[in-house]
Design a protein around this nucleic acid. Structure first.
Lengths: 177, 177
DNA sequence: ACCTGAACACCGTTCAAGT
DNA sequence: ACCTGAACACCGTTCAAGT
């Protein structure tokens, strides 16, 4: 046995974290494993399935047993933000099977199905915009050569706090209902 | 003057609605205009810019002057759902410049910046999942040959009602704060 | 079971050149 | 100003064939 399906997923996550989603092609994942592109199709039916497996792996870091709805959302966001473009991968994959994920099911036990969906969609969306914002900031910093401290750049908003305030709004709405 | 920038955007939206985002390539848009692919780059710097212009056009259908926050979100969702994969196009393009869109600004006047962001992210997310769900249902219906009424298919959830309930939760949270 | 090699039908983008 | 033609460096996926 030369490579297993888990090896493929791990290699794909390495490529994702290093190069980003746009560069995470089947061909690059194959190169990461020193293998021909066609070899991947022995382990995975297509790229979409591989992305779904990557999403599962990213979400596996969220502990389901303990904590309230807020803690669950924060942990999910942290898990997505821990990998480059992780929010995109998880949100896209999850959108295809909303309702079947373990996180959503646990959330539904805590706050009902509508609350769970609302919290999830908000968490996905905020994490995605956090990651694109951070990437843009990184890119801007590269172009920012001769400027002093805060030279011409708007102060970065505190995205963690912004996320928390949105969570407060939704949780208050659930408490009121 | 043979083609204008607006012609390119219109052609792109036609291709999008007919074939979906995945098939909405620069080459197909060019073919829609009976033009070489390279001709597009006279009107638009790259594909990402074209997608942003398409998103603007889709969102232009939302009336900003009248209505409360709820009406605004419903109108935004309707606008996105009116074009195939419209939610994807708008959500991706908007994520790059969150805070600058006219809809978000109007929403912020009504419910504050945190409320606006929460409502927007929820609306984007729900619309996206609505569209993927509907496409999956369409696809499933094609494979569903010999079954009678509701033969083996789970009843489609009422996605409009689901959206409304999530909106209720967020708006209740805003009223409580 | 796992992989190679070669092919097919595509992409986005650039650039010199035409009118 | 607007477009063509040709090229470059890529894609995802299939399939016969090897070990």
């Amino acid at each position: 046995m030369r490579n297993t399906r888990a090896d493929v997923v791990t290699a794909a996550l390495r490529v994702l974290d290093a190069q980003g989603l746009e560069s995470c092609s089947m061909r690059r994942v194959a190169a990461e494993l020193d293998v021909q592109p066609s070899a991947l199709y022995h382990h995975v039916p297509n790229k979409q399935s591989l992305l779904a497996l990557m999403a599962d792996e990213i979400v596996r870091a969220v502990p389901l047993g303990q904590g309230d709805a807020r803690a669950l959302c924060v942990a999910l966001r942290d898990a997505m933000l821990s990998v480059r473009d992780g929010a995109d991968v998880v949100a896209t994959a999850e959108a295809f099977q909303l309702g079947s994920s373990a996180v959503e099911q646990r959330l539904a036990e805590l706050v009902g199905v509508d609350g769970a969906r609302t919290l999830l969609l908000y968490t996905f969306g905020h994490a995605q915009s956090t990651q694109t914002h951070r990437q843009a900031a990184e890119f801007g910093a590269l172009l920012d050569t001769a400027s002093g401290p805060n030279g011409g750049v708007a102060a970065a908003p505190d995205l963690d706090a912004s996320f928390a305030r949105g969570l407060d709004i939704i949780l208050a709405g659930l408490a009121a209902g």
